[in-house]
Structure formats: C-alpha cells, structure tokens
Design a protein around this nucleic acid. Sequence first.
DNA 1: GCTGACGATATTGTTGACAATATTGTTTGG
DNA 2: CCAAACAATATTGTCAACAATATCGTCAGC
Lengths: 219, 219
Amino acid sequence: MAETLPLLTGSEVADWIRERIRVGRFVPGQRLVEVDIIRQTGTSRSKVREALQRLEGEGLVQIEEFRGASVKSTSLDEVRQIYRARVALEGICAADFARHGSAEHKASLRDLQSQLDQCVDERSPERFGRLNLEWHRLVVEGSGNRTIAELLKRLNVPIHRLLFESFYDEARLRRANADHQRMVALFLAGDADGAEAAMRDHIGDGFETLSKIESEFYR
Amino acid sequence: MAETLPLLTGSEVADWIRERIRVGRFVPGQRLVEVDIIRQTGTSRSKVREALQRLEGEGLVQIEEFRGASVKSTSLDEVRQIYRARVALEGICAADFARHGSAEHKASLRDLQSQLDQCVDERSPERFGRLNLEWHRLVVEGSGNRTIAELLKRLNVPIHRLLFESFYDEARLRRANADHQRMVALFLAGDADGAEAAMRDHIGDGFETLSKIESEFYR
DNA sequence: GCTGACGATATTGTTGACAATATTGTTTGG
DNA sequence: CCAAACAATATTGTCAACAATATCGTCAGC
C-alpha cells in the first residue's frame, strides 16, 4: 500500500512530496522533517534537500532557517487570487482552443463530456472530480500553450482537495456539467469569444461555491 | 564595478544569477559552471548548487546530469506563449485595478504616466523601458493580486531584454505610450471592461512588434 | 590529413562528518 | 504548583573529501 519505493532523482522526490501535498497526505502547516522523508522515500539527504528547495521555488512549501520546511497554508484570499488567475488563463485557453484547437482534441473532449454526463446520473462526485480535472486539462492542452499549462498545474496544487469537496454539492455538480456541455458546443462551433466568456463564468462560479463551503482548509 | 560581494544564503545567490540572466549578462545556452559562480559570488559550492536547483524549479535554467546547469533558451513560440499568458493575466489585473484599485494607486500611476510622456519627447528608450516596466508593475500591484504578480515576475524574466529592444522603434514607443494614456483614463474612470480590452490590445501589439524584430535571441 | 582510441583534466554528483540552531526535557528555586 | 534556567536531544546548515562522468588533448594507425 505505502509507496516506499526508492526514488532516484531529487526531482522525483519533489514530485513525491508534491503529490502527497496535493492529495492531502501532507497538510498545510505540517513540518517536513528531512529524516522522515528519507525514511519514506529511501533516498539520501541531499536529494531531499534539493527537492524541498525546488518546492519552495514553486511556492508550495516555506523554509525557515534552522527550522526547516513546512507545507505552506493557503488563506481564502489566496484562493481567490488563484481563481482570478484561473479565470484569466483558462479563459484565454478556451478562446485559443475554440479558434485553433485540432479536430482530434475537440473530439476527445466531446467523448470525455459524455463520460461526465454519465457521472451526473450515477451520482459519483469523486469520479466526476477526476474527470473534471481531465476536462480542464484537455482544454488547456488543446490550446497549445504549454507555458500556461505549467502555470495552471502549479496553481491547482493548493486547491486540489477543495475542488473535489465542491462536487459533493449536487446542485453545483449539475450546474458545472451544464456549463461543460455548453462550452463543448462552443468549442465545436469555433466560437472563441463565447467559449472564453463561458469559461470565465464557469470558473467564477466555482469560486463562489468554494467560498461558501465550511472548511478547515484555511488558516 | 564588479559586484563580487560575498553573498550569504542560497536564495541570494539565486537572485544574483536570476538578475544576471534578466539583464543579459548570462545569455541563453550559456553554461553556468559552479566554480565560476563561486569565484564571482564568494560563496560555497553547496549554496551555488542550491541556487541552481531553485532556478531550475523556476524554469529559468536546465540541469543535465554530469553536464551541469545552463541558461534555458526561449524559442519564438515560447515567447508567444508567454505573451498569451500576459494578455490574460495583465488583462484581468487591469479590470480589477479599474474596479477596486485605490485612489492612491491610481494617482501614482497618473504621475508615472506624466514621466513617461516626458520620455517620449526626450527620445530616451532606455528610460522609457524602465518606466514602462514600473507602469505595468504598478497596475498589477494595484489590482491586489500578489499571486498573479508573482507569476508575471517569473514570466517576464526571459523576455526582459526583448522588451527594451522593442522601444528602440520609435513608432512602437509612441503607440505604446498612447495606449498607456488611454488606459490611465479608463482606470481613473473605473471602466473595468474598457481597461481590460485596452490592456489586451496593448500587450498583443507588443508581441506583434517583438516578433518582427531581427534578433539572435531565439534558438 | 583524418579518425578513432586512449589518457589527462575539468566538472559535477554523492556521501559523511561536523557546526549552528532549535526543540524538548529536567531541575531548581520560589 | 509554576516558571525560569540549564542540559540533552533533534534537526538543519555547512563544508570538504571522494566518486562518477564528461570534456579536451594527444597520439597511433591508416
């Protein structure tokens, strides 16, 4: 069960830690003690230190002198800022995807959408959450902008768990899926402005829902 | 002249390297040999290695095993992607600044604009370039979104020198300043949609100019 | 003269020991 | 019992030595 595989490079250790933060195995505020990570990953200290420095560069952990690394906590206002960035970036990706996206990408998205439609009827918010991530990732990929894709990947790490929480509200789930359906139609029609506006509304809505959730997520 | 001051922390060494990349003292493709940086900064090897790993996390350098770090070069297509991200992010900052920006921030921007106006008559593209950076930074700061500010700071590092080059074209400089003047008016009037549209056009124009410049910048 | 093999040097990767600091536990005086 | 001073431990920061690999120069053979 526990993945105590021996990791090789410092970058892989960073991936390992990032993933654990993403899924909530390491929670905000938690201290990341070097020895513990060495035990769990089977790597050397220099690799762990390298990984932690990398993650600090990404803004995911903070390092205090002689006190070590800890998972950075995210305030509600920071979540708002992240969503504002998402509105801007995914909005423009939606426009670019509608305008320049390949027929293959658009077909993939349409297929994915039909899977999402099933989830709504089956009442499986977990699965919906996963497919939802994939849906958004596909749009960004289809826009052909890897720079923005990278920015979004980083932005999403701190809010990953929140995203899933929001889909336990079924009304929100249904509304989100309706947005998705509408956007798929706009993508296929090549309506860039319409797709961008719809994406911005959709993500804006997402934050509205999120900010109302009772959560001990914030500091 | 040469700043061979002894730097203390690894993070400071990273700042030192990043600044030298930004201003073109380290050019794309150039190898960053640890010993050289140790000599120039007066720090130890572990600090330098820490700095380089951090910078790789930021995507500014690439590290190959047993071949060390080198400044990552930027293709024209990557510049395009960066500009697409800027269009999105600075656009939304413009809207937020027009909507929620403080009177103080708006006054500061108006003052800065008058300095820029002087530059146009004085024909000093270097000074215009510096003030232009400050102008954009001020808008983002005024929007109150530090997350986006951080993203933009990173995005701008690889294109910093290109930005200055574009203002040696006087027509471009005059057009840019006219854009700025128009936007300042929109900010003061609180016209969020107008400000966003203007910012997007302005930055889009910037890329158009850039992509026409003959430059050995790209790989 | 050219090419490929070989060795010398340069550069980076890794490990371990030690120093500096923080954290925790204990004792002592009130 | 509480609090402050002190001691013990844990944790991180730093450095230097060594190993692994790449790069460069040299030379033999054709």
